[in-house]
């Protein structure tokens, strides 16, 4: 199946694509009591492994404190979202999938690698307007994560935040007030 997609193969193989290690990017040192120094070291080792693109070179020479602070902020937002969605329990499957996703993302930021949380199809029926405020908050989280990706000095960190935003958006698409309700 793959062999016909030569254009993609060429593009991807030429990219020296960054691959974040599965255990990476522990940076929320302040809240975890790790300390800023340890957080910076983890950021350096987790977000800039083996990548030589100009963005990464710039990030290595720049003060990493901005990225550390960004990750700390992102972790805080994820914790807030987890608390918000947990309050909706028992939640329909799409909302529960968002909750599990945030837990995975938070763990990633904290350097833990839990099992993946692929959503499972559900036939659960639920109110059309379940949690409109929560829906709005999730949409805002997508926007915030995108902003973190935009501002990240590390290219790898930018990619991570963008992927987190995209995953959050994917889950949100299945919410009752998203595509699934139409």
């Amino acid at each position: 199946m793959n062999q016909y997609l030569n254009g993609y193969d060429a593009a991807v193989s030429a990219s020296n694509e960054p691959r974040l290690p599965r255990r990476t990017v522990v940076t929320r040192g302040a809240s975890l009591g790790v300390g800023l120094g340890a957080g910076l070291a983890l950021l350096a080792s987790g977000c800039s492994v083996g990548h030589d693109n100009p963005v990464d070179q710039r990030s290595r020479s720049a003060k990493p404190s901005a990225d550390v602070a960004t990750i700390d902020t992102a972790a805080g937002l994820l914790e807030e979202s987890i608390a918000r969605l947990s309050a909706l329990a028992p939640a329909p499957a799409p909302v529960a999938a968002s909750l599990r996703l945030h837990q995975v993302h938070l763990s990633r930021l904290q350097g833990v690698n839990p099992a993946s949380t692929q959503p499972t199809p559900s036939t659960t029926t639920y109110p059309r307007h379940l949690g409109p405020a929560a829906h709005m908050s999730e949409r805002k989280l997508v926007h915030q994560l995108s902003g973190f990706a935009q501002r990240a000095e590390s290219g790898d960190l930018a990619r991570l935040f963008a992927a987190m935003a995209a995953a959050t958006s994917q889950r949100l698409d299945a919410w009752p007030t998203g595509r699934g309700a139409r």
Binding site: E17, H105, Q118, P119, R159, L160, A163, A166, A167, Q170
Partner: peptide, 11 residues
């Protein structure tokens, strides 16, 4: 395409 935890990333 199934939803992913990190679309656009190889993890």
């Amino acid at each position: 395409v199934p939803a992913s935890d990190y679309p656009g990333m190889t993890v």
